[in-house]
Simulated scan of single mutants.
Amino acid sequence: MGEDSVLVARRGDATWITLNRPERRNAYDPEMADAVVAALDGSTRSRAVVITGAPGAFCAGGALGNLSAPDVTSMRGLYRGSLRLFDAVRNHPRPVIAAVNGAAAGGGNELVVACDLAIAAESATFGQTGPRVGSAPVTGATNVLGVQIGEKRAKEMALLCRRYTAAQALELGLVNAVVPDEELEAAVDAVVAELAALSPRYLEIAKVSSNIWWNAARDSFTNGLGMLVQAIGSPDMAEGAQAFLEKRRPRFPDPDA
Rank of each mutant, 00 (worst) to 15 (best):
L19G: 09
R80D: 11
S43M: 03
D236W: 10
C161S: 08
M157C: 12
R45D: 15
G130W: 01
E23D: 14
A231T: 04
A241I: 00
V50N: 03
C59F: 09
S43L: 05
N66F: 13
L159T: 11
V50I: 11
R45T: 14
P131C: 03
N109K: 03
A206S: 13
R76M: 12
A69T: 09
G2A: 14
N223F: 14
I232P: 05
M1R: 06
A9M: 10
G2S: 13
K155L: 14
A216E: 10
T15K: 02
P235S: 11
W213A: 15
A257Y: 13
D116W: 08
E122P: 10
A197T: 10
L40C: 07
A136P: 00
A63F: 07
S209F: 14
G224D: 10
A121Y: 05
G240I: 00
A103T: 04
G42M: 01
R11N: 08
I97G: 07
D71N: 12
N26R: 06
G134W: 06
T73C: 07
L83K: 06
R25Q: 09
G233R: 06
A196G: 02
E246G: 04
R90Y: 06
A27I: 06
G12N: 03
Y28I: 13
G56S: 13
Q230V: 12
E171D: 14
P131R: 04
R45N: 11
R218K: 09
D71F: 04
I17T: 10
G130D: 02
A136S: 12
S199C: 10
V179Q: 05
T139D: 13
A241T: 02
A103E: 07
A57R: 00
K247Y: 03
N26T: 09
A33Q: 10
V89R: 01
K155A: 15
A60D: 13
E204D: 12
A69L: 05
A103N: 02
D256A: 15
I119S: 06
P235Q: 08
S82L: 09
A114D: 04
V50F: 02
G102L: 01
T52S: 11
P55Q: 05
A190N: 09
E185S: 04
P30T: 10
W16Y: 09
